[in-house]
Amino acid sequence: MVGPPERRHHRTRQRREVLDLLAATDEFISAKQVHTRLRERGSTIGLTTVYRTVQALAEAGEVDTLRLGTGEQHYRRCRDDHHHHHLTCRHCARTVEVTGPAVEAWARQVAAAHGYAEVNHTLELFGTCADCRPAAG
C-alpha cells in the first residue's frame, strides 16, 4: 500500500542535505540562507533545487514554515512532531514551539458549527523576547 501523497517522496541526496542542515539549525531560515550554508559545507546544490526541496519538505510536513513580516518564507525542522505553533521574536527571530489546546478546541468548534471536517490551521505569534525587550526600548 502506498502512503498518502504528501508522504510519498524520494530520499534524494539534495533532500538529505537540506534536512540535515535544517536539523542542525535552531532558528527558522530562508531558502537563500539554506543554499548559502549548504554551499559553505561544500555542496553543489543549486538555489532552484533548494527552493523546490524546502517547499516539498514543507508540503510533506517534514519542516515547519513561518512567513515573516517581510513576506519571505522561512523553514525549520522542528523537534516536536506533533501539531504546534511558534512564538517568534520580531527583533532577533528567536522562536519557541508552543501548544495551544484552547486554539485547537476553538478551531474544532468553529469548523463543526459551519459543517466543516478535516480542518487544519496555522497560528503565528510574534512579540519581543526578554533578551530584546531592553534593546527595543
Rank of each mutant, 00 (worst) to 15 (best):
D131Q: 07
R79A: 13
A113D: 13
R94W: 11
L68G: 11
T65Y: 07
G69N: 07
R108I: 00
L66Q: 07
A117E: 08
R39G: 15
A93I: 04
H84V: 00
A102Q: 04
E59A: 15
T65K: 11
H114C: 01
G69E: 05
Y75R: 03
F126D: 10
E72F: 01
T53F: 12
V110Y: 09
H83K: 04
V63C: 11
A113I: 06
D80K: 00
L47K: 14
A93S: 13
C89S: 08
G100E: 03
A107D: 05
A135F: 08
T122F: 06
E104N: 03
A105K: 01
P101F: 00
E62K: 12
H86F: 03
L68E: 09
V50A: 14
D64L: 09
E97H: 02
L68A: 06
D64C: 10
E124F: 03
A93D: 10
D81E: 11
D64H: 14
L47E: 15
V98W: 04
A105N: 04
A102R: 09
L66H: 08
R94M: 06
L47W: 14
D64M: 07
V119M: 12
T49M: 15
E97S: 11
C78D: 09
C78L: 03
V119A: 10
T65H: 07
A136D: 11
T128Y: 01
I45C: 12
A113V: 04
A112E: 13
L87R: 13
A58L: 12
V50W: 14
G61N: 05
A107T: 03
A130G: 06
R41T: 15
C132L: 11
T44C: 14
V96R: 08
